[in-house]
Design a protein around this nucleic acid. Structure first.
Length: 873
RNA sequence: GGGGGCAUAGCUCAGCUGGUUAGAGCGCAUGCUUCACAUGCAUGAGGUCACAGGUUCGAGUCCUGUUGUCCCCACCA
């Protein structure tokens, strides 16, 4: 047999183990009718992305679930992929081109796309290799990309269907425009932040009078596009002006004063300049009052021809000059500092401009309704369910989705226009001629679709939809979607309504939501703060298993968590423990080890086997509920405390003793428990468990495809396990007594026991001596037989006496006993108060009442013993 | 303005549908170099579960309110 290294060294085997899994095809999914499918779609990371801690956690959670289900015998498909991330990627490539001294306009669409694909080939794979480092057991043979042929086909199909149902339309509306990226954005892609700015108060002269109306604005440059001033209809201050005409300063345009409820009398001056082309609210006012819309900004944020002499200036330069000119004209009343929420581009952080523009939209109301119902009817469940509320809140307040982007890297909108008759044609394939006039002079819509339009189809586009492929039939709908709460509006919601609309099924049964990984101080990890921790560096230092375990322990679903080195270290220490415990078992494993069924089990054996069964049940239940943190907690507790600290220590007398049969029996139990523990641990720490599994003499195949342990009632040994807890309690009590009286732990002491469990103690005598640091155990009827000046303590098995002679400080011993007595009396009082409560006895479950009565008896017995001992002192 | 989270040991956090003496890790104290592991072992100190009410035989857990704190959405030009 190969020898295990003396220390746990993940670098030595992690890559090798992953290679082995790949070679064995362990991740490959098959549509096996004999099995129950279990499907998870990986949230596709952006091809531009680097693996960050958020991914690491998301991936780990999925991998734990997927490995668990695979071991349970499901036909598991975990489908990986990447997102073309149209805006993010295009932004990157544009920057690269700029550095090379060229631009996308210069290259033209075709050449630009060629470069983009080349870029994708070169860098798009990095995140994939990083996922492998983490141990992700996804089916790489099905690797998808939102811009590949399969997904593109689905996108066209979905668009086509929505268009024909009238759920996609083109129209001029106020949208969020990024002057840097030069594209429209959806409402969800706007990031608001409180920015310091100013409030400029301007006087607008009333035509033909000496009077003015004072308005306040945060964006003076938009005045170039003002087409009215609005006041509240019930505002008496301005009643006389309604219907009058103002002269827009600088521009000289005559604009009306209109009355509209939208205006808040309390805010600012109570008079609002109206710029319908550059503000969503003004846009609405403009529609109500039939105001002209005058767009004054170009796509790059400079002033256009409508701005007269300001044409060509950047918006901020124009702002400065306009303010200056208003000042010169004596129309600037005052300037106040003012912080307000400003929308920024999700991608490049530039300040967005609301601009009226012709774009494509998805009509949301008809799509949102079924998505709401599906969750209400529990067809899809959020875990934790509080996120359903957030989901509802979003969908109930949803507005139409702007899906067109003025970008090239993405799915080009499948719409063509006829150059002759102007007909709009939506088609799956490029049409040859206009169906209306027959003209062959057609040109395709220039715009691309929002990246999220293709992501929304991810659960089924990756399976070949709209074709009824084997994969689609077998693996769809998927079982669980794992993602962070920040993605609900972008993605979860859109997959839900898209899935329901296109496939008439919910795309997933459960949505498992996790929180954010924060830094040590609880701050969001971000590029600008530079506080992000690179998962790959952590893997390099501690191994992937340690990182994985640290990311799921002590974490509740949906809650944020902090990443600390200390946590990873704790995980590493645990894994090292497992490594060494395994090494211990294997070092002692000599000769033929009989299977568990052929072994006569000792009380300690039954105890650890029982504990294992309990752990199997608890861990399985927790994992089924997606309580990974609880599962990991129970598991580490069992493995470290019960197995390593107790059972292995208990096993040593047998292993080092002369009784060959008992030794083989103990080895059998050690091997059985170790193997099962490794299996339970495998989803969390796959590499090290696979590596150790390879050393087990009985193990067949790989642990990744082994059967997950099942709770076995026959091995539960509930009563015996409970009885054995008494032995553990005895050992702990003796240890504590020795420490309390200052007896050196190395000094072996004789024990005298008053107990009714003589057999149990006798059978475990060697272990008790070893673990408690005792020289001998004798049974007595009372403390009087326990030699000179014994200290005593009651424990579950009865009462322990240790004659310590000189070592004992009588006064200290009395105090100790009195304190103990006090505690016991307190417990008796507590139990009694419950038992004398008629309502408790009548209404509480019988079991609880019985337990309470038993407890009282136990404490009464203890009390009597302590009192006797006090008298003896 | 709307929605949501959090408040439990010095620190970071678990605690499911109400029922043990409220737990873990780290830290702290004390003691252990024996052959799996000092990335270890043992023992221990440390909590009026934010506050006030309520429901209940019974509340860290459910309800109402208060305070503090964080997040998301909307947004006053």
């Amino acid at each position: 047999m190969k020898e295990m290294h003396t220390t746990y060294d993940p670098k030595e085997f992690e890559d090798r183990v992953y290679e082995k899994w790949m070679e064995e095809g362990s991740f490959r999914a098959e549509a096996d009718p004999a099995k129950i499918p279990f499907t998870v779609m990986m949230p596709p990371p952006n091809i531009t992305g680097q693996l960050h801690m958020g991914h690491a956690m998301d991936e780990t959670i999925q991998d734990v679930i997927v490995r668990f289900k695979r071991m349970q015998g499901h036909s598991v498909l975990w489908l990986p992929g990447t997102d073309h991330a149209s805006l993010a990627t295009e932004h990157k490539i544009v920057e690269k081109l700029r550095a090379e001294g060229t631009s996308k306009e210069e290259l033209g669409r075709e050449e630009f796309l060629r470069r983009a694909w080349a870029w994708k080939e070169q860098y798009g794979g990095t995140i994939i290799s990083q996922l492998k480092k983490l141990g992700s057991s996804c089916d790489w043979s099905r690797l998808a990309f939102t811009l590949d042929e399969k997904c593109s086909r689905a996108v066209k199909e979905a668009f086509f269907r929505l268009y024909n149902k009238g759920l996609i339309y083109r129209g001029s509306r106020i949208i969020n425009w990024c002057p840097d990226c030069k594209t429209a954005l959806s409402d969800e892609e706007v990031a608001y932040s409180e920015d310091a700015g100013n409030f400029w108060y301007f006087n607008y002269p009333v035509k033909g009078t000496e009077e003015y109306i004072t308005i306040a604005t945060t964006r003076p440059e938009t005045m170039l596009g003002d087409t009215a001033v609005a006041v509240n209809p019930s505002d008496e201050r301005y009643a006389k002006f309604v219907g009058k005409t103002l002269i827009l300063p600088i521009v000289g345009r005559e604009i009306p004063v209109v009355a509209d409820d939208y205006v808040d009398m309390e805010f600012g001056t109570g008079a609002v300049k109206i710029t319908p082309a550059h503000d969503p609210n003004d846009f609405e006012v403009g529609l109500r009052h039939n105001l002209p819309m005058i767009r004054v900004l170009n796509d790059d944020g400079t002033v256009n021809a409508e701005g007269g002499k300001f044409e060509g200036l950047d918006r901020y330069e124009a702002r400065k000059r306009i303010v200056a000119e208003m000042g010169e004209k004596g129309l600037l009343v005052k300037v106040e500092p003012h912080t307000h929420n400003v929308g920024h581009c999700h991608r490049c952080n530039a300040v967005l401009e609301p601009i009226v523009s012709k774009q494509w939209f998805v009509k949301m109301k008809p799509l949102a309704a079924p998505a709401i119902h599906a969750v209400m009817q529990n067809k899809t469940k959020f875990v934790p369910d509080r996120f359903a509320k957030i989901y509802f809140n979003w969908l109930e307040n949803i507005r139409d989705w702007c899906i067109s982007r003025q970008l090239w890297w993405g799915h080009r909108i499948p719409v063509w226009y006829c150059d002759d008759c102007g007909e709009t044609i939506c088609a799956r394939e490029t049409p040859q001629k206009c169906p209306k006039c027959g003209s062959e002079r057609l040109h395709q819509e220039e715009d691309c679709l929002d990246t999220w339009f293709s992501s929304a189809l991810w659960p089924f586009s990756t399976l070949g939809w709209p074709e009824e492929t084997e994969d689609f039939k077998y693996f769809y709908p998927t079982d669980v979607l794992v993602t962070g709460y920040d993605i609900i509006p972008f993605w979860v919601m859109r997959m839900m309504f898209s899935g329901l609309e296109q496939t008439e099924k919910v795309p997933f049964r459960d949505v498992l939501i996790h929180g954010l990984v924060r830094d040590e101080q609880g701050r969001k990890m971000s590029k600008s703060l530079g506080n992000g921790v690179d998962p790959l560096e952590v893997i390099e230092k501690y191994g992937a298993d340690s990182l994985r375990l640290s990311l799921v322990t002590g974490v509740a679903p949906g809650n944020d968590t902090r990443f600390t080195d200390a946590k990873v270290e704790a995980s590493r220490n645990f894994i090292n423990k497992i490594w060494n415990a395994s090494r211990f078992v294997l070092m002692n494993a000599e000769g033929e080890i009989p299977p568990l069924a052929e072994v006569r089990l000792q009380p300690a054996d039954r105890w650890i086997i029982s504990r294992l069964q309990t752990t199997i049940r608890e861990v399985t239940l927790s994992l089924q509920k997606y309580d990974l943190g609880i599962a990991a907690d129970k598991l580490t507790d069992f493995a470290w405390s019960d197995f390593c600290d107790w059972y292995i220590e208990l096993s040593k007398p047998a292993l080092y003793g002369d009784d060959a049969e008992r030794k083989r029996g103990t080895l059998s139990v050690l091997m059985f428990v170790l193997e099962n523990t490794l299996k339970l641990l495998h989803p969390f720490i796959p590499f090290v468990t696979e590596e150790i599994y390879g050393y087990l003499p009985h193990a067949k195949g790989s642990i990744i495809t082994a059967d997950y342990p099942r709770y076995n009632t026959k091995l539960a040994y509930k009563k015996e396990a409970k009885a054995f807890e008494g032995v553990i309690d005895l050992i702990k009590t003796v240890r504590a007594m020795k420490v309390e009286v200052g007896c050196p732990p190395t000094k072996k002491v004789p024990l005298y026991l008053v107990t009714e469990q003589k057999r149990l103690v006798a059978v475990n005598k060697m272990s008790i001596l070893r673990l408690a640091g005792a020289s001998d155990v004798d049974f007595v009827e009372s403390g009087a037989e326990a030699g000179e000046k014994p200290v005593s303590k009651v424990c579950e098995l009865g009462q322990i006496f240790i004659p310590l002679g000189q070592l004992v400080d009588i006064e200290a011993e009395r105090k100790r006993l009195e304190k103990e007595l006090e505690r016991v009396i307190g417990e008796i009082a507590r139990a009694e108060s419950k038992l004398t409560n008629k309502n408790f006895v009548a209404k509480a479950p019988k079991k609880l009442v019985e337990d309470e009565a038993a407890k009282k008896e136990k404490y009464l017995d203890m009390k009597a013993r302590i009192e006797t001992q006090l008298k003896l002192l």
